[in-house]
């Protein structure tokens, strides 16, 4: 039972970060209909930028966060203008391919600038707490708290501000939004900016536990099973999907790894695969995720 609670709590903590990153993904999809398969690389780059801010520019933590957000935000806008804007109105396949190829390019930038080294990123304390019989590190509590904060901030942003409302309007109906004077292209830039910033924050939070490396992009790719489970166009789905994936992969490590190693599957890499297996099962049962809209197709 102790193990169960331990796995559950650490799953929820890391799952919130996944949910946060998934939020950035869902946002781009809702406002522009673009599926951003480069989100994992945005996550990785965010962590590397923060590493540079702290270890090379010697900023303090708050400034390093701001520095990361600024650089990632600019990167998001550049991606939106250079790569995405020319593809407005192109078939889905082209747009998906563009983001896939972008992920390769961003990986190239990371290798060029940081040499694909694994670096430590210890920005939070190293103490441990006991909560409800589980041992929880200070880092994961920070990650959880900041993710929740960010999610709440974005929810408020969508509900209360002009920019957020414009994004919701575009998500609802692009033509109608245009007819009331919303510049769609600005909204695209906007959503990419937010996606990059959210990805960067998620990257920092993940890296503060695992360290910064190129492999962080695979960790960031876990956003894809998250949105599959939650449903592509649902913000609460993204958060809940994130928590589900976080719990599921921890449970897989705790309960399934010993089982599969009896079957001859050694090495314990199940943690990274299990979210995808779960997503495959959910797709077979509910092709549109738990909260996604079922679309009716017409010819």
């Amino acid at each position: 039972m102790d193990m169960f609670i331990q796995l559950l709590i650490s799953g929820v903590l890391v799952g919130t970060v996944y949910g946060l990153i998934a939020l950035g993904f869902v946002l781009v999809y809702k406002s522009s209909g673009i599926l951003n398969l480069a989100q994992g690389e945005l996550v990785m780059l965010g962590a590397y930028i923060c590493y540079t801010g702290i270890n090379v520019l010697h900023l303090n933590i708050a400034l390093a966060f701001l520095f990361t957000f600024a650089v990632s935000g600019v990167m998001g806008i550049v991606i939106s203008r250079v790569a995405i804007r020319p593809l407005v109105g192109q078939p889905l396949l082209s747009v998906i391919m563009m983001t896939i190829v972008l992920s390769i390019g961003l990986r190239g930038i990371a290798i060029l600038a940081w040499g694909a080294e694994t670096e430590g990123l210890s920005i939070f304390g190293h103490s441990y707490y006991h909560i409800a019989g589980a041992v929880v590190s200070e880092q994961s509590i920070w990650a959880f708290a900041l993710s929740v904060l960010a999610v709440v901030a974005f929810a408020l942003y969508f509900q209360k501000t002009k920019g957020g409302r414009a994004m919701r309007a575009v998500a609802e109906d692009q033509q109608a939004a245009q007819s009331v004077g919303i510049k769609i292209i600005n909204v695209f830039d906007h959503s990419w900016l937010i996606a990059a910033v959210v990805g960067a924050l998620g990257g920092i939070l993940l890296a503060s536990g695992s360290g910064v490396s190129i492999e962080l992009s695979h960790l960031g790719l876990k956003v894809l099973p998250v949105v599959l489970i939650g449903g592509l166009d649902s913000i609460q789905g993204a958060i809940i999907g994130g928590v589900i994936v976080g719990i599921a992969e921890n449970m897989a490590v705790g309960y399934l790894d010993p089982v599969v190693s009896d079957w001859g599957l050694v090495g314990g890499g199940l943690r990274n695969v299990f979210p995808y297996i779960l997503a495959l099962f959910i797709l077979v049962v509910r092709p549109h995720g738990l909260f996604g809209q079922k679309r009716i197709e017409r010819i």
Partner: peptide, 12 residues
Amino acid sequence: VKGFYLAITTLA
């Protein structure tokens, strides 16, 4: 599934 869901399925 199709489109994006398919991309993720093949990724899985």
